[in-house]
Write a protein that binds this DNA or RNA. Sequence first.
DNA 1: CTATTCCCGAGTATTTTAGTCAAGAATAGC
DNA 2: GCTATTCTTGACTAAAATACTCGGGAATAG
Lengths: 153, 153
Amino acid sequence: MKLTTRGRYAVTAMLDLAINGGPQPVSLADISGRQEISLSYLEQLFAKLRRNELVTSARGPGGGYRLARSGTDIFVAQIIDAVDEAVDVTNCQGKGNCHHGETCLTHDLWEDLSGQIHDFLSQISLGDLMERRQRQRTTARPVEGLLQTLSLG
Amino acid sequence: MKLTTRGRYAVTAMLDLAINGGPQPVSLADISGRQEISLSYLEQLFAKLRRNELVTSARGPGGGYRLARSGTDIFVAQIIDAVDEAVDVTNCQGKGNCHHGETCLTHDLWEDLSGQIHDFLSQISLGDLMERRQRQRTTARPVEGLLQTLSLG
DNA sequence: CTATTCCCGAGTATTTTAGTCAAGAATAGC
DNA sequence: GCTATTCTTGACTAAAATACTCGGGAATAG
């Protein structure tokens, strides 16, 4: 699991789609305009999102992208996984053939840590983010809303 | 909060220091040899770790680095923060002067998400990682040990 | 037909990452 | 004091990743 700006772009775009979309598709040009992400960059991201079956597409005028399923069933981890390929975290390619006693420390450690983060982001759906956004709009104290909604307890 | 290979290097090196160090300092050359991280790269990382008061240094023969305090009081998030400067997550530099209705969606959303991850990594200390490593060495089933030790419940 | 939109691959500028190199300062042990 | 060791610093560089451009195509609504 990596956490970069690309993942942020993808989550933002997907959230835009969740908010502004519905039965009718949303064009990448629209998202590009609203979120100020370059159109061709979005094209690349959505190619991956589509291959990972997070969105469906419709060509031609009035076409665009739709969420492949309900926002409550699309999770942040899935979006990030779709656009940010996993890093190769080992220096022995998982073969365990490291000579020194301390080696492969790296591998197990980081796999577990990023696994934990992955699990965490697997619990947050686009629906959660939308709900949180709604709350932020309507209430005076925005942050606590999210923290209560999302915190693991 | 970013999650890159640099942070992994830093956590690995700090864990090596926690395991192989103690009252007497550990030289970067030793860590470099064990963890197969280039010496000069380690130098750069440890400069940052020292500025962030996570390690102390001793020059001269027999010198090296020591943890600035107990491993149970040094947390993964602190290490990553020290070496991976935070990304600028806003496109309006936090001024909130975005014209379109949907903008700054990015900012709040990502700040909160990465805040959550940060909080999570703030709960895992070097001591936890050492304990977990110990467990992994002595028990047959390694993974479950960590999951129980570290999981949020 | 035509404009719109997705689709795809190749190419490119910028930034980041990972690493090199060289000079210097402190210090332990002789 | 000399010397080897080790940190300290800064500048520089190669390679990779990132963010983006460009150009052409294919589907399709009107």
